[in-house]
Amino acid sequence: MSSASAEHRNHVLVVTVENKSGVLARVASLFARRAFNIRSLAVAPTEDDNLSRITIVVDGESAPIEQVVNQLDKLINVVDIRDLQPGHAVERELMLVTVAVEPEHRDDIVEQLDRAGGKVMSVGTDSMMLSLVGDPDHIDAFEDLLRPFGILEIQRTGRVALANLDETIE
């Protein structure tokens, strides 16, 4: 996911589904059954209580994207699918990360974090927990930057995305 060549193979599908029990399992099982690879997946309710939105990053190498879309569309609970084109959508991801930090390096890390737009969430004697929201490339870059300090624990949400406003109007 971190290299540019991998990134351009990935497709971001924003899938609107009925908010019913078992729907996520149907989507996940379809990907397993058809041997499509999921890079990341994020689910949450939408502005409409009856609907949830699943943002799926699909490895475009594992299957032609139109086949993934067509198979997903056959699921009865799937209401809408958008294949977001790179550069035509706002994509965000949240990272929580705990890094090992000697006290003398704290200021250095905080300065980098400020520049990236992140926040300090918790400070321990020899570690810090940080949060950062951004587009996935931005998060990747910051993760690389932290690595020399020693990442103790990391959790990324997988990306969520919405089409740019000019795309939504269509």
């Binding site: 078992g22 399992a25 149907r26 099982s29 379809l30 059954r33 056959k74 009865i76």
Partner: peptide, 14 residues
């Protein structure tokens, strides 16, 4: 039953 048959039915309901 719905879990077992999800991938071999057009759709199923509980």
């Amino acid at each position: 039953t719905t879990g077992i048959t999800a991938s071999i039915t057009k759709h199923n309901f509980l």
